[in-house]
Amino acid sequence: MMAYMNPGPHYSVNALALSGPSVDLMHQAVPYPSAPRKQRRERTTFTRSQLEELEALFAKTQYPDVYAREEVALKINLPESRVQVWFKNRRAKCRQQRQQQKQQQQPPGGQAKARPAKRKAGTSPRPSTDVCPDPLGISDSYSPPLPGPSGSPTTAVATVSIWSPASESPLPEAQRAGLVASGPSLTSAPYAMTYAPASAFCSSPSAYGSPSSYFSGLDPYLSPMVPQLGGPALSPLSGPSVGPSLAQSPTSLSGQSYGAYSPVDSLEFKDPTGTWKFTYNPMDPLDYKDQSAWKFQIL
């Protein structure tokens, strides 16, 4: 009977010793046993002879290597770790002494450095960015050149030099007046198309007034536009458009034309069986010896 009264063996659950049927240790109110408190290391007290050895090595170098620390530790009968900690504390003490010396050398008012006064946003004049500046400075420094007289040679050079070769001289006033084509001369031969040399188009003023001019072949195509416009036809070669000034309004060009419109200028042929003959000019830059190549039959 006494065997049943004795408590059973101890069981360990999660490293906790349980005594038989008792489960009081598993209750929430019972805390787990805490780790033992780490003991504080005792402070090391250095003797005068030990301090002399350490100070002598510190005077040589503030960062001794492990071999120098072990050698000193053997002399003063201390572990190497204590020597390492002593050098660490000695360097910190040396830095603190240097900072105190710097503070003593500075004057009393030198510690508080005078800061520059901050400028207020409204006091300083700042350039306004509302208006974009002129990058080319046209509004201040540029002045347009004065327009020359209508009959000045410089204007003629600016007008005619675009179309004339570089080897030719500017046309005088008398020749510029001949550039304007007359109405009857352009409409006299509506079906004849003559190819003149390129030099005649640039230099010869008579080429624009003769039936064999460069633009005589364009007349049949330009004249039928007159009834559609409801007024006189516009002429690209009329009046002052080739003269001194090219800047004319469309209203000033509306009254200039080749001449009176005639039914002869239409595109319809009077004789459907007729042929169109292209007159060959020996001055043509295209060297075609066979003139029969310039004739064709309209079917």
Rank of each mutant, 00 (worst) to 15 (best):
I138C: 04
S241D: 02
I298T: 00
S254Y: 07
A121V: 07
R176D: 03
M2S: 01
Y214M: 02
P184M: 12
M26A: 04
N14G: 05
D290K: 14
L246W: 11
S206T: 09
D130G: 05
P170V: 03
S213C: 07
R40Y: 14
P64F: 11
S12W: 12
S182C: 03
Q106H: 06
V242I: 09
L229V: 04
E168V: 10
V72F: 12
F201Y: 03
S49E: 10
P149E: 04
S167K: 06
Q101V: 09
E168L: 12
A15M: 15
C132D: 07
P272Y: 08
K75W: 15
V30D: 02
S292H: 09
A35F: 09
R119T: 01
K118C: 01
S150I: 07
K289D: 02
G110N: 02
S254C: 11
K118V: 02
R40S: 12
A207P: 06
S150Q: 03
G274I: 12
N281G: 11
V131M: 06
V85M: 15
G255E: 00
S292D: 00
G183E: 01
T45E: 11
A260D: 05
Y142H: 11
T129Y: 07
Q39W: 15
V226P: 02
F278Q: 00
P153M: 10
I162K: 00
A117M: 06
A56N: 05
V30S: 02
R98V: 06
R126H: 05
D284F: 13
W276G: 00
S235N: 02
E55F: 02
A198N: 01
P145Y: 05
P282H: 06
S128V: 06
Q105G: 07
W294L: 00
V23K: 05
K277T: 11
Y288G: 09
A73K: 13
W163S: 01
Y32W: 08
E80D: 11
T187F: 15
G137I: 11
P205N: 01
G178S: 07
P244E: 02
G20N: 06
V131H: 05
N6M: 13
C202E: 01
N14V: 15
S213Q: 05
C202K: 03
I138V: 08
E268I: 12
G151S: 04
L286V: 02
C202I: 12
A198C: 02
A260Y: 10
T61H: 06
M26H: 04
T187N: 02
G209I: 11
L267P: 01
S188T: 07
G231N: 02
P107K: 05
P145D: 03
L186H: 02
L237P: 02
M283T: 03
Q105F: 04
P224W: 15
T251R: 09
Y221S: 02
P33M: 12
K289R: 06
R43K: 11
E168N: 07
T273E: 02
Y258C: 05
Q297G: 01
